[in-house]
Nucleic acid binder design. Structure first.
Lengths: 207, 207
DNA sequence: ATAATATTCCATCAAAAGATGGAATGTTTT
DNA sequence: AAAACATTCCATCTTTTGATGGAATATTAT
């Protein structure tokens, strides 16, 4: 059985895909309640009933968007793991910061959607919760913060979360933070990467 | 001229204050668009017109809530600065983590509102932006990351922001993160504080 | 070409949401 | 006590919003 999400991905120019992309950007900007189906339809240049035809109700469209973003991030994590396999903790962090920052700066709506879906009280994503729990644990082990899957302490997981959070915030808060730092986009990206290295690496590489 | 917000603060039991508090919690949980005036009124146990009578339109109520939270956080920062004045960078961080974490865990809606107002595209808070910019710069100087007010580099400001972000995220994301770490509230608070110390202190205290 | 299927839009509905006027009630001032 | 003012709620209005039925159009299969 092929899901609408897979269909949209298979044909990037299709109406399904166009709707998904508009929805992704808008939900990322304004959150679930801040976006109306009419806004999305207008952005795509179609009627709302066409939107409902392809994606069902608003909730379903939103969940598809969140699933889309989560899958993408999952792929990124796998890509990173491939690159850093067997490397030192310092290199792991350097590469992870570089790759994740680049991805999130290219897809700011992804970062926002993650924040919205994590931090709001409206989180029906119990599937995502367990998926994320698994990722975090795996990363903790890969980083050598825990011996094996059966014995990952809350402390180890919390440290992984702290790393993850740092990256997310700077990309989601770009608008505000850039005005505070008073730099252009290119400079901002560099400053953020440098800051992340400054903050994160010493914690994990000290003797 | 006395503002409605000051009036509400002067009399904590008043209708103005009760509405403000309900609105604060609800807006913190669901964001501006996720809350209806009827929700707030129902939570207080009053009619919507009473709400409008005291606070005007929804936008105005929301802005009062944000201003309320910002003022409170500003007070906390001043309180911290008093405690750590003249102390070492390590102690500064330890105290800041302790006090801010305690405050935000006691007032999770504050943390959420900050995130909502920082990260959403709907930020008409240009006043807050400049205020925050000033705080960040002051902290950077107090932390010895910059020589004087005229010469605070983006790097220095970014480091202050990184510290601030770390604390915010763990309090806003408590629901999700606690389920990942699988700990109770008390344990969670301790793990978070420990993790923040683990991540933040080495970066600023290494030779 | 024709039938079957898929897609799109127009018109419309019902519910939700922001907002207000004005009557009723309570409080303060004179 | 009476007048002036403040507070509260009920009824109601308008706009927005999510959603759908059905006709029109395009696409694909036979």
């Amino acid at each position: 059985m092929i899901t609408p999400l897979e269909k949209a991905r298979q044909n990037p120019g299709s109406m399904k895909a166009r709707i998904l992309n508009s929805a992704r950007r808008l939900f990322g900007d304004y959150g679930f309640h801040g976006v109306t189906t009419r806004m999305v339809a207008k952005d795509v240049g179609i009627d709302i009933s066409t939107l409902h035809y392809h994606w069902g109700d608003k909730q379903n469209l939103y969940e598809s968007v969140v699933a889309d973003v989560n899958d993408e991030i999952c792929e990124k994590l796998i890509e990173i793991e491939k690159k850093v396999h067997g490397k030192s903790l310092r290199v792991r962090l350097e590469v992870a910061i570089e790759v994740m920052a680049d991805y999130l700066f290219d897809n700011p709506e992804a970062s926002n959607l993650i924040l919205f879906s994590y931090f709001g009280k409206t989180r029906p994503d119990s599937i995502m919760d367990s998926k994320m729990s698994e990722y975090v644990t795996n990363i903790a082990i890969a980083m050598g913060l825990a011996p094996d899957k059966m014995d990952v302490s809350p402390q180890a997981n919390a440290r992984v979360l702290a790393v993850w959070n740092s990256v997310i915030n700077f990309t989601s808060g770009e608008n505000l933070f850039r005005s505070i730092l008073d730099v252009d986009r290119k400079q901002y990206i560099e400053v953020v990467k440098e800051t992340l290295r400054f903050i994160l690496i010493p914690a994990f590489t000290k003797e």
